[in-house]
Design a protein around this nucleic acid. Structure first.
Length: 649
RNA sequence: GGCGGUAUAGCUCAGCUGGUUAGAGCGCACGGCUCAUAUCCGUGGUGUCCGGGGUUCAAGUCCCUGUACCGCCA
């Protein structure tokens, strides 16, 4: 009999991005389900990869004087290597610059063109180069890109369009009829809201003169390349080869596309209509998960709070991070990453509950049976509830996987863990060991405790594969976990008496207060926010602040690159400043005291970690320090020149 | 500006179609055990369930309204 198939994907990540905790989150989430389904006997296909075309790649390559292909060949490895470190079990890693992908994109474009689903028309609009997006006149804010605030160019050109608009009605019906197509529900509602307006056709080409780093259109080869999204989305099927092969393969439609909430529209509207036009079924589920903040703040380079996955692995270990990300926050909601919360999880969930149950069990086996797993003997009242709890948890966990409710799955597994600890507590093996009758009962108790540990190891294996293996080793089980399979825990008593167990190192040592304090000290500004906030300063009531309070404010030198008055505003000047590592747009209320021309070239002090705010429709990413005396406003500065990006204290 | 969401213990949240003394985890306090990583087990408190009005025999749960925050669209 043919196995049931299961296809799950992550987005293909933009190759220019530096991999961060968000990328890791999606990928680990997909990996956990993939591993679970394999354990459950499915034929799983798990796909991830990199998106390698587009303007930004072309530019970045140009800046480093490299050929774009060489550039992406170098960069994509950062993702590939990180996934190896995270024990990601993907079956394929697709790159949009690979021939096999381009071939399918061509096949699809040609098919749609031949069928009249793609047409050419003249188009006039405002184009934001960096964002690679067109805007209409009314979209613009102060004549600039509404998304990034940068200049747009008026462009009049011919382009190819995919007839997306005609698909609106059935798509709305489809979403209404398939409750689980888009999850979570709140996101589904947003898409339905979005689809209440007319749906435009989708511009799927870019003239080669403006952008050459893309897949040429098969029917207009020299003049146009394919719009990056149209190219990228096809990765989900190009992994299987030609259209014929895709139709014939058992994996499509995908069970889940896991994505970040920022790319929901492209998946649920662009991709869905593309598939319809191609004649392929839609994925069963598109799940948009939330974002991670760090200590309550958005991750950003300037805050120096970008959580670097490699560093976290070095510091805490792969499984700890895998566990934390999926346990801490319900999938679909935004979450907050902090070292404090992480340490809390390590100590309470992993060290105290999980590690300790295994350790106390093995230790007693060693002490009372020389490490050899005894044959169960006398039964007792405590046994049945433990076995029943195991069955309940296994069943519930399976149901929750269907909802991708990772944090609930882990909470459920931990219920069984608690049951294990309670079982040991109630049976009190250390007392049983004192009498001959007790020893008979003791055999049963330790047998059951060991089987409980094995059940737990299997259940956590998708989340913490290395830990599960370590547990098996300590339990003296050679059979690989995949071979034991999910079925092996559906009936109690798989583990064999006579097995020689090996108590080894603690799988999760506690991080004691001293070590925790050290870790929290070592994290940057972001980290300090949390630790110091907890220590109420004694001088609060005098209106004074501590040095730590002050250090929360990230003051930086910034060099003004451009300055111009904001239309319709008497006070505001729009500045473009250089922070050394990046450029920011900042609005300053100094127009009454300074002319824009006076400002360019000056070095000023910027509050770099101020939450961005919109003023007169423009985003201000920071605040310039200045003093005022009546009408006079004087900018703060320095005696002599400092380079941009220097911390001011 | 339009649409939608959220506001519940110190913290993070659960409370389905309205129905006995409002729950979980973490933290905190106390007690028990001692196999174990000062771990585990048990007990416990506090909640104007955002404010105001209404429907109902009965509302955290439904309706209206106000406030705050968030999301999507414009």
């Amino acid at each position: 009999m043919k196995k049931k198939t299961f296809f799950i994907t992550t987005p293909i990540y933009y190759v220019n991005d530096v991999p961060h905790i968000g990328h890791a989150y999606t990928t680990i989430a997909a990996d956990v389900v993939a591993r679970y389904k394999r354990l459950a006997g499915y034929d799983v296909f798990f796909l991830t990869g990199t998106d390698e075309h587009g303007q930004k790649v072309q530019q970045a390559a140009g800046q480093s004087g490299k050929d774009p292909q060489a550039h992406v060949d170098d960069l994509h490895v950062r993702f590939k290597e990180l996934w190896v470190r995270f024990n990601i079990s993907n079956n394929d890693f697709i790159r949009t610059t690979e021939e096999r992908h381009k071939k399918v994109v061509h096949e699809i474009l040609q098919k749609l063109y031949d069928e009249g689903e793609i047409y050419k028309k003249n188009y006039e609009g405002w184009y934001c180069m960096p964002d690679e997006r067109f805007w209409t006149e009314k979209d613009l804010v102060d004549g600039n890109c509404p998304e990034c605030g940068r200049k747009v160019e008026k462009i009049n050109e011919s382009n190819y369009f995919f007839k997306m608009g005609q698909h609106r009605d059935w798509l709305v019906d489809y979403i209404n009829q398939n409750e689980n197509f888009i999850q979570p529900k709140s996101r589904r509602n947003e898409i339905l809201g979005f689809l209440k307006q007319p749906l435009d056709d989708l511009c799927i080409s870019r003239p080669t003169e403006r952008l050459s780093w893309g897949i040429p259109l098969p029917f207009d080869y020299s003049d146009y390349v394919t719009y990056v999204w149209f190219d990228a989305l096809i990765n989900y099927i190009s992994t299987f080869g030609t259209l014929d092969k895709i139709h014939a393969c058992d994996y499509w439609p995908a069970a889940h596309h896991l994505i970040g909430k920022d790319i929901l529209t492209t998946h649920s509207v662009y991709w869905a209509t593309m598939l319809k036009a191609i004649g392929l079924p839609l994925p069963q589920n598109i799940f948009a998960h939330g974002w991670w903040t760090v200590n309550g703040q958005k991750m950003s380079k300037s805050l120096r709070n970008v959580v670097e996955p490699n560093h976290l692995i070095d510091q805490f270990g792969v499984d700890v991070i895998r566990y934390f990300l999926l346990r801490e926050v319900p999938f679909g909601l935004d979450g907050d990453f902090s070292h404090k919360a992480l340490i809390g999880r390590i100590n309470s969930d992993l060290a105290n509950n999980l590690g300790n149950l295994l350790n106390r069990t093995l230790n007693m086996l060693k002490k009372y049976f020389k490490g050899e797993l005894p044959k169960p003997d006398t039964k007792g009242d405590e046994d049945a509830p433990l076995v029943a709890k195991s069955a309940e948890v296994i069943k519930e966990v399976d149901r929750l996987y269907g909802e991708l409710a990772y944090s609930k799955i882990l909470a459920k597994i931990w219920e069984f863990l608690d049951a294990g600890n309670i079982y040991v507590n109630d049976t009190a093996p250390w007392n049983l060991a004192k009498t001959d009758d007790g020893k008979k009962r003791l055999a049963t108790v330790l047998y059951n405790a060991s089987e409980a540990c094995r059940v737990i190891a299997i259940l956590i294996a998708p989340f913490m594969p290395e830990t599960a293996d370590k547990m098996m080793t300590q339990l003296g089980i050679d059979t690989p976990i995949e071979k034991q399979g999910l079925d092996s825990i559906k009936k109690w008593g798989w583990i064999k008496s006579g097995t020689q167990t090996h108590q080894g190192a603690q799988i999760f040592p506690r991080i004691d207060d001293k070590a925790a304090a050290k870790i929290l000290e070592s994290v940057d500004i972001g980290g300090n926010v949390e630790t110091k906030a907890d220590q109420k300063s004694e001088s609060d009531d005098k209106g004074q602040i501590t040095i730590d309070d002050f250090m929360k404010v990230d003051l930086r030198t910034a060099k003004i690159l451009e300055a111009e008055n904001v239309k319709k505003s008497k006070k505001l000047i729009k500045l473009k400043v250089d922070l050394g590592t990046e450029q920011r747009q900042v609005l300053a209320g100094i127009a009454e005291a300074y002319e824009p021309e006076q400002l360019v070239g000056r070095t000023v002090i910027l509050v770099a970690n101020l939450k961005p705010a919109k003023l007169m429709g423009l985003e201000s990413q920071g605040m310039i320090l200045a003093g005022s005396n009546g009408d006079a406003i004087i900018l703060g500065g320095f005696d002599s020149d400092l380079p941009p990006g220097v911390r001011v204290k």
